[in-house]
Every structure is written in C-alpha cells, then in structure tokens.
C-alpha cells in the first residue's frame, strides 16, 4: 500500500467515524462536528486517491480547496442557524429528538 493510498484509507476511516457520530449524537453541535469530520474524510479520499502512483495532481487539489471553502461557509451558516434556534427555542437539539 502506497502512502497516498494510506491517506485515502484514513479518509475512509474518518468518513465512518463521522457517520457514527452523526447518527449517535442528538446535540446539534456534535452533529455539525461529526458532519465536518465526514467532509474532511472525503477530502482526504479525493486527494489521496488522485496522488496514488503518479504524484501530486493539481485538479483534485483545487477541487478540495473549493470544497474546504464551501465547507467553512456551510459550517458558519449552520452555527448561525443553530444559535438562532437555541435563542428561539432554548433547545440544542431538534424537536423530534428531544
């Protein structure tokens, strides 16, 4: 197993861990964190797989850079919505999970 493939596999493990946390936890902040871990895992799969056997590939790297910015924006938006939800309802989880 090359090191690039190993990175991709670590990304797979991160995806699995993120999914586990996302299902298990009901607190919205923990869910957001788990979702971000899943996202980081998919970025690692993308970059690791593309580098396997032929060195750095700028196209997936640019794709992942775009993805990171979108992930930052969506996480920030999710935090804004989450805190607004807490202000309105006093709950840090969704109504069906309480």
């Amino acid at each position: 197993m090359s090191s690039a493939l190993f990175y991709a596999w670590v990304g797979v493990v991160l995806c699995g861990l993120g999914l586990f946390g996302f299902i298990l936890h009901r607190h919205l902040m923990r869910r957001l964190l788990a979702f971000n871990i899943m996202g980081s895992g998919s970025f690692m799969i993308l970059v690791g797989l593309a580098q396997d056997g032929r060195g750095a590939d700028p196209v997936p790297q640019a794709l992942v850079l775009t993805g990171i910015v979108v992930a930052v924006a969506s996480t920030a938006l999710a935090l804004v919505i989450l805190r607004r939800w807490y202000r309105v309802s006093g709950e840090s989880r969704l109504p069906e999970d309480v």
Partner: peptide, 11 residues
C-alpha cells in the same frame, strides 16, 4: 449498536 454497525459497513 445500530450506528456502529452502519458506519462499519460503510467503512
């Protein structure tokens, strides 16, 4: 257990 099974399967 369900979450662990599902995420292990996906992994």
């Amino acid at each position: 257990l369900l979450a662990a099974l599902l995420s292990l399967t996906v992994t």
